[in-house]
Amino acid sequence: MITIEDIQKLSELSRIKIAPEEQETLRTQIESILGYIDQIKKATLVSDAVSQKPTVQAGALRNVLREDGEPHMPSEFTERVLASAPAREDNYLKVKKIM
């Protein structure tokens, strides 16, 4: 059961304003999708601990780390990256006052 309050809470958590008239449609859609998804609860796991153990075969996801090093020149990419910012001041992104 998904309520309108759930949708409002999720809207806040995900930082997406959802118009009041859209909330009910979204509620029914999310409920219907979750109704479908709920079938995974029936999947029988031998044991959750065992099945969550990462597989070692090809294609298994694993962390890859590297040594820190090869720093780039200061401000080498600044202009390219900041060129996309909606608002900037010098070499900073400009945002509204936070505190």
């Binding site: 998904i2 979204l26 999708i33 998804i37 995974i40 999947a43 796991l45 099945s51 153990k53």
Partner: peptide, 26 residues
């Protein structure tokens, strides 16, 4: 995004994301 936020939220994580990852391994 709303659906993803829901399945990751406190209280639902194990039932959805955790279970889905385990089933993916199966």
């Amino acid at each position: 995004i709303i659906l993803g936020t829901y399945v990751l939220s406190t209280g639902y994580y194990d039932a959805y994301y955790g279970k889905a990852r385990a089933t993916q391994n199966l």
